[in-house]
Simulated assay, not measured.
Amino acid sequence: MTNKLGFWLVWILFSVYAFVFAPPDRPETLDLIKKLIAGEWQETNGYIVAIFNLMGVFPCVYACILASDGRGQKVPAWIFSGLSFFLGAFALLPYFALREPNPSFEGKTNWNIKLLDSRFTGLTLSAIALYFLVYGFSSGNWGDFLQQWQTSRFIHVMSLDFCMLSLMFPWLLSDDMERRGMTDDRFFSFIALIPLVGALIYLCLRSPLKADEKMA
């Protein structure tokens, strides 16, 4: 119960900060978003390009966990997972508050669970993330990014959203490992603390769902 209340509190405080206390919107924000979506990145700080695209990778990472974690939950995980592609942590925090511990997997794996559970998916997401990490660090301007972070609500909140998703991920790790019979969690508990990269390493190395948990 304490954890549930904690997630609700974080969600409320994060939402209030983002929409009340964060820097104001800038007139060019909509044009910036259009350029980021269209791939017109020539005049945009590489760090902003990287974070924007990594915020598309992170929901995929969570989808790979929620696909099995949502089995048996009272709330449909796929709704929160889908909304996270648009709302990030603002969509996932309520799921964290509503979910119950789920260390087992019952029933058979359907095609979407098999896809999201596959190592190929983890490797694909890792390759995409690596590209944008290299892009950001090679072409980004830290001074300009910091200035925009302090003056643009979109960039400010997007960056904090990335940090929030990074902090939330380890919370799902224990149950996911138990569903796979992974008893030694010290290594993964450590790397999960590395923002996004740790989560991707886990997806690439985690064991398949236990066979006896796939049976109805």
Rank of each mutant, 00 (worst) to 15 (best):
D117M: 04
S139C: 08
A129H: 08
Y135L: 00
F120G: 07
L123Y: 15
H156D: 07
D117T: 10
S152L: 05
T151Q: 12
G143Q: 07
Y135A: 03
T121Y: 05
F132A: 00
N141F: 04
A129G: 05
W142T: 14
L133S: 11
F120N: 09
G136S: 06
Q147Y: 09
L123H: 14
F120E: 13
D117Q: 13
Q147R: 14
L133V: 13
G143E: 09
G122L: 09
R153T: 00
L123A: 13
G136L: 07
D117I: 13
S126V: 08
L133K: 09
T151R: 11
T124I: 13
Y131T: 08
Y131F: 15
R119T: 06
V134Q: 07
F145D: 00
L123P: 03
S139L: 15
Y131W: 15
D117H: 12
L130I: 14
I128P: 12
S126Y: 13
S126I: 07
T121D: 05
L133C: 13
L125I: 05
Q148R: 15
H156C: 10
I128A: 15
S138W: 10
A127P: 06
Q147W: 03
W142P: 04
L133Y: 12
F120K: 15
S138L: 10
W142Q: 10
Q150S: 13
V134K: 06
G143H: 05
S152V: 06
G122P: 03
M158V: 13
F154M: 06
L123G: 10
G136T: 07
G136A: 06
M158K: 08
F154C: 01
Q150R: 12
T151M: 05
L130P: 06
D144P: 07
